[in-house]
Design a protein around this nucleic acid. Sequence first.
DNA 1: TAAATCCGCCTTTTT
DNA 2: GGCGGATTTA
Length: 645
Amino acid sequence: MAKLNKNQQKAATTTEGKVLILAGAGSGKTRVLVHRIAHLIQGKKISPTAILGLTFTNKAAEEMRERVAHMVSKEEASAVTLSTFHSFCMRILRKEIHRLGFTQKFTLYDEKDMRRLIMQVAEELYEGEEELALEPIITSISYLKGKGMTPSEKEPFVKEVYEGLRTAMRAYNALDFDSLLTLTVELFETFPEVLEKYQDRFRYIMIDEYQDTNPIQYRLASLLSEKHGNLCVVGDDDQSIYAWRGAEVEHILNFPADVTVKLEQNYRSTSHILKAANAVIRNNVHRHDKVLEANAGEGETLEIFNAPTEQDEVEAVIKRMLQLKEEKNYRWKEMAILYRSNNIARSFELSLMQTVWRKGEQWVRGIPYQVFGGLGFFERAEVKDLMAYLRITSNPKDQEALLRIVNYPRRGISDKTLDTITQFNRQKRLPLMAVMEKIAADAYPELELTSRGTQGIKNFMILYQGMTEKFQSASLSEALKWLVEKIDYKNAIFNEVKSDKGREFKWENVQACISALQTYEKEEDPTLHDFLSSSMLNKKTIDKKDRFGEDKLNLMTFHSAKGLEFPAVFLVGLEDQLIPHAKSQTKEGIEEERRLLYVAITRAMETLCLSMARKRTQHGKLVSCNPSRFLFEIPKEILKVTSWK
DNA sequence: TAAATCCGCCTTTTT
DNA sequence: GGCGGATTTA
């Protein structure tokens, strides 16, 4: 392994106090963090259990863990706490949440669960009122949570919905992603003795991608590091692209550092690529001033072209990729197509599937590719259904899960019946499951349910009884297998989906759920609750399709490309209205869009091709477009303008 | 009760 | 152009 440069060395060995590491794109940020951890353990003889590294993605945490394991012993590496903010909070809350009025078996709600719940709460509060604008309420609640604030008197609607939501979440024994963080902060602020326990455990704290922290994460980190004062944050204000989700660049711009180290040596890209990136980002006013220096040779000039239509652009890009593959011997996985928003991907997918190309001696149809993002495994309807069954087994108060599957597969419990009993259970402040149990025992005749509905509820309660018993007596995967049979889920899919392909796909996902549980059971001390929460916090793991190491072309948004690098990168759809996006036209918005393009450009190591189209269909309409205004900020001498053909 | 059709919307999205 | 939610229809 090459030696660290002077500044990297300094960043890795300055361990005490508040340290700010400003790490430009490709400047070896992860390497520095890894060396820093190794230095703490080996040089400073700090116990690995005292070290905490917080990241934003599981991918980043995994990568760091892997690389740390190469530098210190396996035992030491696994004793370091390296996790996402959310997993870290999950671990603390699992131990301490009883202090806050929840039980250990709480459920984690995703955004869709939350939307439905907010909708219900709001509708109940403002029954009959027309024109209830929900969207702004949802937005402002999640905004406030990220900022660590509660609604003020100025917005009575939001305040009421917010409180109703809190009550419901407590009744359902459920948390959402945001409240993992807010509740942990609440825990630390109300129980100083608990805070002190964790302060004394984690004496050296590091935060990766600090430019993306929101106020609540910032507060968590300050609380934890308050006593011992060793907090090291790493980030790049130029790569802050999540302000729209509550992240505040101010945190990194105003960090009260005892020591600041700047890493400005780029080891990733050729100088032409860097020149373009620097030229673009220079136009932002709100930033730490710095210029990345190249160390990887000059490389070729960047290619840029403007195609007549989006289809022409697609074909031109594919043609160039095939050429590059021949000339430079790139593999598919060394190339990436990056775009501002997901809808651009579709036309590429269609063409990639049809392209005929020469693979060694033979001609084949279809270029192998993988699209990042999109619907994750755990967001697919059939998987969510099964998870809902598991959720009510683990936490019977989980009303969202119960409502999802109480009549799926169909049991004759109509929406009207459900409406009646949910109103009743809220009024009486009883868990829905308890109400249904009573109904099955013919209590509550005053509800005047249809006989069909009552029968449906009876059937469901018998099933629920059976489930509970099965999950206690059999292994998790066997119990799930039993359940799928019992509810005849295969038949439900068959009736729902028309195409054979769709049916097959869904059934495969059901099987994948079962095998996911089988895999999970091999871990030590497997519990249903733990399976559910870890699959919520790390959603992708299971998908059979991304067997790693396969040679596939990468398609992803600028956002999800952050932290990655590729020898050849194609930035497509570089048109005004797309980047900067039509909906980010404020001054701050434009600066964030510029940072986004900066992130995209700096993903490239050797080859970078920029492209756009003059006409493109948007929302089903053909519109003409202009090149992105940011492109004019790149000096002409490093661009090679080509005809699209 | 459940299928069929219609309407209106539309960024980015680690957890 | 395509998806989800709402409303209409059998």
